[in-house]
């Protein structure tokens, strides 16, 4: 192994641990492009319907952005490690439902609002992380590819949500919960501000810490990463548990917004997360992706949703717009890759 590394001085691992300045600038371009796309969207929607450019609409957009960016960041880490997590959407619904049952029971038992909500968020992230742990165990020890492993947990979690709730929403939790999702400072509600802090932490994790270096290394070349002394299996556990943790947090976010848990919450949301990640410039082949890209990718998706409703265009057009964005982003990614390969 080591000799092979010597023979290939420009092996992917070294490339990623110390990204070349050109790769860096190319990625920076993608972020700038996304920012321009987003600004053009905001301008376009505002010109068509001036009410779009308001704190109210921004509040709606951020309320959608919060849970999406949470699971998209989890998805980003998984994608950078050359995996995929299809279970995040089902995880959102399942963790929200379990927490809703817990909070309903506590409220019925007369427990006050704040401790109930704190236990609720704890239940969400624990349940979410456990689903992530199951994913990792299936990948590491049952030797399933991530697509299949997370397809298994997607089915199990969404099925269990329906079985446990019989399809009905579960409410009856703390009465004040729903008011937490109301904008607090400008368009930002308290949960959205928490999400912004989480985004900052995730940025540091991925771009400034060993966790991130390992993740990129595994996604670029798992064999080389193992040869370099990284405990790949252990890191896979961390990655999928973190993705599950973030999905659980998104489940709690939805709980606050809806004042209850719903078994169909988050259904199919894994595809929105993957879309945000791909639009943000990550490559499904692994080793590439930035937090800032995913954050903007998620923001663009939620801006389209609200924008189309406000200007009064059939929201089904969102799918078409998103499809075009994915095609463009993936093409840029492919061009960048082939350019890199030619050197």
């Amino acid at each position: 192994m080591a000799t092979t590394d010597v023979k290939q001085p420009s092996s992917p691992v070294t490339q990623v641990v110390a990204p070349t300045s050109r790769l860096k600038s190319a990625l920076a371009n993608q972020q700038l492009l996304l920012l321009i796309v987003w600004l053009v969207m905001v301008l376009g929607f505002s010109l068509k319907s001036p009410i779009f450019f308001s704190v109210d609409v921004a509040g709606n957009i951020f309320a959608d952005w919060g849970p999406l960016v949470l699971i998209a960041l989890g998805e980003l880490i998984v994608v950078i490690s050359a995996g995929i997590d299809l279970s995040v959407g089902a995880n959102v619904g399942f963790s929200g439902v379990i927490a809703a049952f817990a909070m309903k029971a506590l409220t019925t038992a007369g427990v006050a609002s704040t401790p109930t909500l704190l236990i609720g968020v704890l239940v969400c992230v624990v349940v979410g992380s456990l689903i992530g742990l199951i994913n990792a165990l299936l990948i590491n020890y049952a030797k399933l590819v991530p697509f299949i492993a997370t397809l298994v947990t997607l089915g199990a979690a969404s099925g269990m949500s329906l079985v446990l709730t019989k399809g009905a929403p579960i409410m009856g939790g703390p009465a004040g919960g729903i008011m937490l999702s109301v904008p607090w400072i400008g368009p930002f509600s308290k949960p959205v501000l928490v999400v912004i802090v989480v985004v900052a932490v995730m940025w540091a994790f991925l771009h400034k810490a060993r966790f991130g270096r390992y993740t990129y290394a595994i996604g670029s070349n798992a064999f080389a990463a193992r040869a370099a002394g990284i405990d790949v299996k252990r890191h896979i556990v961390k990655i999928y548990m973190l993705s599950g943790f973030l999905a659980g947090l998104a489940g709690f976010f939805f709980y606050l917004r809806l004042g209850g848990g719903a078994p169909t919450s988050g259904y199919g949301m894994e595809l929105d997360a993957i879309a945000a990640v791909v639009i943000g410039g990550a490559a499904l082949a692994g080793g590439v992706g930035r937090v800032s890209g995913t954050v903007l990718g998620a923001l663009i998706l939620t801006t389209v949703t609200s924008g189309l409703i406000i200007v009064g265009v059939d929201p089904s057009w969102k799918r078409v717009v998103v499809a075009v964005l994915i095609a463009v982003a993936a093409t840029l990614q492919a061009l960048r890759k082939s350019e890199g390969g030619a050197s």
């Binding site: 319907s49 009410i51 308001s54 109210d56 609409v57 509040g59 709606n60 309320a63 959608d64 849970p67 929403p169 939805f254 917004r257 809806l258 719903a262 169909t264 919450s265 988050g266 259904y267 199919g268 949703t305 609200s306 409703i309 406000i310 009064g312 929201p315 089904s316």
Partner: peptide
């Protein structure tokens, strides 16, 4: 004045109504 679709997801229904209340 308007109709919108939730795709069976309450959070999408919630977004739709929030935007209607603004619009």
């Amino acid at each position: 004045v308007d109709v919108a679709y939730s795709q069976s997801k309450p959070e999408v229904a919630n977004t739709n109504v929030n935007n209607w209340l603004t619009k």
